[in-house]
Amino acid sequence: MSLFSGLGDLAHLAAIFLLLQKMRKSRSCSGISLKSHLLFLLVYITRYLNLFWSFKSLYFFSMRIIFICSESYICYLILQNLRPTYDKRLDTFRSGYLLGGCAILALIYPIKYSVFGILWTFSIWLESVAILPQLFMLQRSGEAETITAHYLLAMCLYRGLYIPHWIYRLAIRQHVMLVSVFAGIIQTVLYADFAIVYRRTVLQGKKFRLPA
């Protein structure tokens, strides 16, 4: 862990908090992609499988628990309590291709040929693209509530801050995983496009709206 990854993790927590806050206050999940959140849930489950037998520190242990629990809770809310407000007709991204593509990449080049190694690699690739159903949904509706835009920006910061973290690790000659770096860059680029629109709209006090 470094200052950058610590801040990145905090941005991730902030993103989850913002999303839950929005869902709780508005009693609605309109504009939120269930598909993206199911993918994120799969990301955390496959990555943190070793949660109970590989203890590193209280920090990592509790963050992992928080990510798995909060993501399960978000999916639960969309599927149960807030189901009537879920825009199913807008959430039509074909996530099967993402799952298939990530599975193939993980099988071809896992960090280690073991169940854990393959699942971990799968989770890294899947995380990099898991937001696509959400961005696709945004593209279809053309605008987002400001708070959804805040959520996406916080998620952009999260992986974006890992990039200086990896550079720092390289600088102090610590091991860096190439897969994480590649996937992390893809992930940040996907959000960055969105962040540019965010800067032009939300930061100028306007409603988040994609250019026509």
């Binding site: 862990m1 990854s5 992992r64 280690k112 890992y162 995983m177 994480s180």
Partner: peptide, 10 residues
Amino acid sequence: DTIQSIKDEL
């Protein structure tokens, strides 16, 4: 090693 550095990140 590889698996060790996985544990350093979320």
